[in-house]
């Protein structure tokens, strides 16, 4: 990884190519989501919560595979989903630190990404007059929106954590032969706790735009069946069923 602020690029002959289908995501089992896309993504895949291994803070993610490094949604060259999480779409661009103290965040590019090329075959970032291309302007807009959505997502996570809305589960995969395998460290919305909320709390969640994502993520657990079907299509072993176990 070589995350460089777009403003500090000193070469202007950079181009982007090969992003079609986002092949970099082929072994991504979990993808961060922003709150604004939860409803859409939940139509395709399970939306759950996990703790960040480095900070212990909760993140909202899409579950794409039933084994480590497995992405069942992406079967080269195509995706089995209608929509693709923004954090996949953005590559090789990202939001990263743009000052020495690493306090300010802004649009960056990962110069080590396979998508970045100096050949002429890709989509250029700059014109021959060293001005931003329309493509780069669209990327910057996309990142600016994503930055705002990230902030809102943090607010969403803080809210549901404070309300005690998350509870731990494991996903039990039962193969035709052999022992059950279990995915642990996963969290979902606690439906019972949700039902105990008074009208004011529910109203507040609705006003914040959080009620829909909460229900969407709950309902998305049904997509585990879809993951299981995709697993059985793509893998040599067969799963009889996949169930959610409350902890």
């Amino acid at each position: 990884m070589n995350i460089t602020p777009l403003e500090q690029l000193n070469t202007t002959d950079l181009a982007i190519s090969g992003t079609q289908g986002h092949p970099h995501a082929k072994s991504r089992q979990l993808i961060n989501l922003v709150v604004t896309e939860i409803a859409q993504i939940s139509l395709d895949m399970p939306v759950i919560f996990v703790k960040d291994g480095n900070t212990g803070q909760f993140r909202c993610v899409a579950l794409l595979g039933l084994e480590q490094n497995q992405n069942l949604m992406f079967n080269q060259p195509r995706w089995h989903s209608h929509s693709i999480p923004k954090h996949i779409q953005r590559e090789p661009f990202c939001i990263g630190p743009i000052d020495q103290q690493r306090n300010t965040l802004g649009p960056c590019i990962d110069l080590d990404s396979d998508y970045v090329t100096t050949q002429s075959e890709g989509t250029a970032l700059f014109t021959e007059l060293r001005e931003k291309t329309e493509f780069l302007k669209r990327v910057e807009e996309f990142l600016a929106t994503l930055f705002e959505e990230e902030r809102l997502t943090q607010e969403f996570i803080n809210t549901i954590v404070e309300l005690g809305l998350l509870r731990e589960i494991s996903v039990e995969c039962q193969p035709q032969q052999g022992d059950n395998r279990s995915l642990s460290g996963l969290f979902i919305i606690d439906e019972e706790r949700l039902r105990q909320f008074d009208a004011d709390t529910v109203k507040r969640l609705m006003d914040q735009g959080f009620l829909n994502p909460i229900f969407a993520s709950l309902n998305s657990l049904g997509q585990l069946n879809r993951l299981t079907a995709l697993f059985n299509q793509q893998s040599e072993s067969t799963l009889v069923q996949t169930t959610v176990q409350l902890k």
Binding site: T55, G56, Q57, V161, F187
Partner: peptide, 11 residues
């Protein structure tokens, strides 16, 4: 140090 910075989750 990490707990001092980020805190632990209650669940």
């Amino acid at each position: 140090d990490k707990i001092r910075q980020y805190g632990l989750q209650t669940v």
